[in-house]
Design a protein around this nucleic acid. Structure first.
Lengths: 175, 175
DNA sequence: CTTCTTGGTTCAATCACTGAACCTAGGGTG
DNA sequence: CACCCTAGGTTCAGTGATTGAACCAAGAAG
């Protein structure tokens, strides 16, 4: 979003939410974090976003308590960005938005989501039709769909080709 | 969203969705349309958005099949913008986003949503806990919450103070 | 004939995004 | 020690989107 990211006159929690996550690239950063991306460089190559924008988004997301920056090694010092509870709570919204995009603007599903306990594909509201419960993000298994490029260029997309739980960190193959 | 509203490298239905509705103000226009706002001037005063931006958003939303422009009187010729099926299908995403905003960034609820059949307040996923079904937008009753300004300046906000079904056109009091 | 309403368009100023270049701290190699 | 590499940034000029104010037009109303 550009120029005055706030919606001053709007007395509305949707507007409040959009002030936080409504800027360009922000929700895609959160999506990647749900998919298990954690490191600056992985966000960078996977999103294709300018570094300045990525830095700014990671900063505000951290300040708003959606991501947490934490040290994962001391020498050399390196940090990673991990979703907080507040960030994980965006999963239903992203799920709903993604489903809308798929149903109205994409031919074949790019990614399917299953309940990890029973393998059942999630219903439209993120519920498990078999178990009759809403599936928390950590119990969602993401499996690649037919529409997905089977041989992507960047290592992050390649790592995301394996079935994998949400939030579980991705494993990059080097070489 | 600014500058290149597309996410070319993103093979993802969330990115597809955001290309359509991710620009600044767009989701708030859809929200207002769900609340029953239909006319150019009503969007204008309620959103406080520049006219040029509103015109642009209404145009793309119409082109993308989310709104439909239709004549509501012949003399003088006047058009209104009404949500299509595709637009109404954004309700779960807006509901999820609004709930996230409310739970994490707003003290008191600004608006409550009930199942019109039984009066039960909707659950977090837009379901009716009493009936056990997902409530379509047209069957959602919007009632003002404690956090809402009881005497707003613009006539659209005043019209939205009454309990009202989603999608049902607002009634502006003149004078 | 003048004014009001509705629904816009135009335009300069401002601000955000982009892409490329540069920077820094810490390793690793010869 | 000299050199290159990686991860994680910052800086900056150019471009594009947003803003707010002004202007426009068609029909109705007085």
């Amino acid at each position: 979003m550009a120029l005055g990211k706030d919606y001053a006159t709007q007395e509305c929690s949707i507007a409040r939410a959009l002030e936080i996550v409504g800027e360009r690239w922000t929700l895609l950063v959160v999506r990647d974090a749900l998919y298990g991306v954690r490191r600056y460089n992985d966000f960078l190559v996977h999103l294709g976003v300018p570094r300045a924008v990525l830095s700014a988004r990671l900063k505000t997301l951290t300040e708003e308590g959606i991501l947490e920056k934490r040290r994962y090694q001391e020498s050399p010092p390196r940090d990673e960005y991990v979703l907080t509870e507040r960030g994980i709570a965006l999963w239903p919204a992203l799920r709903a938005l993604g489903l809308w995009g798929r149903e109205h603007f994409t031919e074949r599903p790019l990614r399917r989501f299953q309940h990890v306990n029973c393998g059942t594909e999630l219903g439209p509201y993120g519920e498990c039709p078999a178990c009759g419960t809403f599936v928390p993000a950590a119990d969602v298994l993401s499996v690649p769909g037919e529409g997905l490029d089977p041989d992507p260029a960047d290592p992050v997309s390649r790592a995301l080709l394996k079935p994998k739980r949400l939030l579980e960190p991705i494993e990059i193959e080097h070489g």
